[in-house]
Amino acid sequence: MKTVLEAWEQSWTTEMGAYFPGERVVLRGKDLFTELQDLSWMGLLIYGVTGRLPDANQERLLNGIWALGTSYPDPRIWNNRIGALAGAAGSTSTLGVSAGLAVTEALLYGLRPLLGAAGLLLEAQRKLERGETLEEMLANKLNKASGCAPASGQASKKRHRLAALPGFGRPVSSRDERIAPLLELAGKLACDRGPAVKLAFSMEKVLQQSGYRHLYLNVAGLMAALLTDQGYTPQQQYQLCVLCSSGGILFCAADAATHPPGSFFPMRCASIDYHGTAPRQWRTETI
């Protein structure tokens, strides 16, 4: 009997697709040039990730999430900053965007909160079905995370609470300006009344009534709710959004490349705030 490695040597078995050089391309059992040629990029993305052809509203919803929620042209934002630094340092836009996308898999923003929020919504749905209340569930999560009262203002405890409740709260400001425009778009597409969206806002209400004033629903939480209501699994939501910050990072890279060399937030030596060991001499006996 062959080992796994022997069985797969020189042979990749798949249903995802393939390229037939000089002839055609197949994606999930459909010919790209004759059966999928009218799909938008968002439609192709949804089909490639889920294997289901989306309807027009699903394409527009994902397009809106990408356009409104995830590509700010501000180089102060941590993932965008990678693009800007690449541009300022004379690197390439592709390198800057690639690295910036990798950085988007962060704890405090980006893909981890999205994936975490999707998981949290599913967990909340299961617990409600078992008779637990939202109040109990949220209190348990927050108590486990920090073991502190809601009134505490310590930064590290706030960070723990942000990580404990992905989809709620923000590191820079408590209210998320993207909620209203994204909800407006979802309303136009009749996607704003699903059970996950209602659950997300119910959780926000409980948090506010419980004294967690900084834990408003953030865009990752709303994105997860909207995408959950479209039937996407948490992993599919993550995959649909892996590239969604690329626009903002690219804008910042392109902008920085047009500025004077070295002009992107240069820092003087004195701006390093050192808290370490006092000056000392290297011992030479070890070499």
Partner: peptide, 26 residues
């Protein structure tokens, strides 16, 4: 930038160029 191991002292003629770089005090 808060650092637990890196310290720089600037050149007299340029605050953006380091004359001395110390790593954990060395």
């Amino acid at each position: 930038i808060r650092s637990s191991f890196w310290h720089e002292q600037a050149e007299p003629d340029n605050p953006f160029a380091a004359a001395v770089c110390r790593c954990a005090g060395f």
